[in-house]
Design a protein around this nucleic acid. Structure first.
Lengths: 340, 340
DNA sequence: TTGTACGCGTTATCAA
DNA sequence: TTGATAACGCGTACAA
């Protein structure tokens, strides 16, 4: 019963012009809110548009103007993380909000495979978007390389070392990690370890660096474990390993709240109390932090603002404004709760 | 220091043709993998492409072919839900996977405001995408209306009553809700209530209907509360209300796992044991289910497959194949764990 | 097997 | 203030 209801030919500017008895040029000017179009013409055109049911053909417009009024947001994450990471969603929404205000369309592209990578690279070159925001790029991310190569205006959320010259917006992961670790130390802990994660990304490696800063001479690399993902599972495995290595551990900095949550569960099962026997702190101030018992002391990062700021920057770039500073750092805030 | 590095003029088919000493037509044919292009020509063209750094201009291609090889996935959710709902992410990834296989680009559009709504409607009409998948549409969703009006090939995930004729893919919410409620009753519960949610969406209202089916004559509307969102908070508030209304309640069907998690926390605080004093079941089989103690008995819905299937259907539509059945229902599975 | 010429729907540049 | 017309870059019959 195949009845592929043929879509009717769409009305064009030409049809509108004919209907309104004016030229295409006049219609185009009116559509773009340009000056020099008489009231009588405007009125006739409006009527004609309604009558023939005209809508702009963006493909044609893009071709003529060489821009699309759309911005890509590129997420490069394995499945599980995309679903779990609370920051990505918030960044997405922040970016969307800001672009929406400027009447730009956010187009979210997901890289889930190598095939996606190459297809998206072609998409970006294809003129579908005027710029891009890249979330959670790894070091030496092929898509990042592609973008710099294409010369597409782009802003990174985060600051991969492999793309030092690209505009970015981020937080001071290292400083924040240092500060929260110091808070932990201030509660009198003597044997403090870290469950690190995502060392292939700047956020992960910087948090470890900050931990190291805070520990100073007391840094003991045997009390550091690392995992690829910021996940609860990483916390579970990490905490188990740490307990094996140091039975007397009394403090843990987890690279994210999800990691901390996993670690806390293991501690509880091992019969240890938090914060009595072991103090623990996290990072992100996500839902996880409030769901823990006791609630988690952590670092709040303004994920939605990161998105907004990235959007603002990419809009500037698209409009030919080279930002004065290559990157912008947004402030974080320490949230002290009951876990340490 | 404004240095808007002017983007160099991009190479076109014309440049390639000149470089390779062939005509534009030949280049075009070769690019599209059509027959009738000699090996010598092919070779020369490949060299030329590499030399001038040619990439297709998609806007031009779209204009000429009247298609974009892109499919939109439209998410219409308030912020909090978008971040919390585990199904949306899975649907997104499933859709992306399937489209990727067919070499289509997924373009994810987020509706966060009325302004977004109208802008996206224009985007859809603009020829940027060949079809759309709509996730979590409400009843009488303006964007759904717009799509049917435009005549864009589209598939709903879920089956809003206000768009009965549109192709859709979903699960049997009503039947599954009935079955899980029966499991709960089978443990000997006498006073069973429901914390419903999202009654403005088909999933929400159907789950309530299924609960009603299972309860039969024992249905007591005073033991039903409802909230706008599938959120943990809904579970917290809902459980409090139910306890006020019926101190002796001994069974609860929560409209989602997140709702169930909130309810369980309230039960615990009130000194009741699960499943001893109160049995509780959820819906989704999301992370929440495993994070509860005891783990939650729930309904597993194949969110990723919903995405894949929706993608397959929209691809069929785009290629002029009218599906035999207007909708496809994917099977759910009951997961019995410790909570009831 | 290859080249030519026209059409896709807009915008932009003139001259009127 | 308006209208004609040349781009924009590519696909595609049709002719060679």
């Amino acid at each position: 019963m195949a009845t592929p209801r043929a879509r009717p030919r769409r009305a064009t500017i030409f049809d509108v012009a004919a209907e309104a008895n004016v030229s295409r040029g006049t219609v185009s000017r009116m559509l773009n809110g340009e000056p020099y179009v008489s009231d009588s013409a405007r009125e006739a055109i409006e009527k004609a548009i309604a009558k023939v049911g005209y809508v702009r053909n963006m493909a044609a417009r893009n071709l003529a103007t060489q821009r699309s009024k759309a911005i890509a947001l590129i997420v490069h994450e394995p499945h599980s993380v995309f679903l779990e990471d609370p920051n990505i969603g918030a960044i997405l929404l922040g970016t969307n909000e800001r672009l929406s205000e400027a009447d730009y369309q956010l187009v979210c592209l997901i890289i889930g495979s190598d095939r996606d990578s190459t297809r998206i690279a072609e998409y970006l070159r294809g003129g579908f978007v005027d710029g891009a925001v890249i979330v959670s790029a790894r070091e030496h991310d092929p898509i990042a390389d592609a973008i710099t190569h294409i010369g597409l205006p782009a802003v990174f959320v985060g600051h991969p070392e492999s793309a030092p010259d690209m505009p970015y917006v981020g937080i001071d992961n290292r400083g924040a990690a240092r500060d929260i670790t110091r808070e932990l130390l201030a509660t009198g802990r003597k044997r403090v370890g870290m469950i690190a994660a995502a060392l292939d990304r700047d956020s992960g490696s910087e948090r470890l660096a900050g931990f190291r800063d805070a520990m100073g001479d007391d840094f003991d690399e045997r009390l550091v474990v690392d995992f690829p993902l910021y996940s609860r599972t990483s916390g579970v495995e990490g905490m188990k390993t740490l307990l094996e290595r140091a039975d007397d551990i009394d403090g843990v900095f987890a690279a994210s709240d999800a990691v901390a949550a996993g670690a806390m569960d293991v501690l509880r099962e091992s019969g240890r109390s938090v914060p009595g026997d072991v103090g623990i702190v996290g990072f992100d101030d996500s839902d996880w932090a409030l769901r823990c018992q006791p609630q988690l002391s952590t670092v709040r990062q303004p994920a939605d603002l990161l998105g907004r700021e990235a959007a603002s920057m990419v809009l500037e770039l698209v409009n030919g404004v080279t930002p004065e500073t290559p990157g912008r750092i947004l402030p974080t805030e320490i949230k002290l709760r009951g876990s340490a």
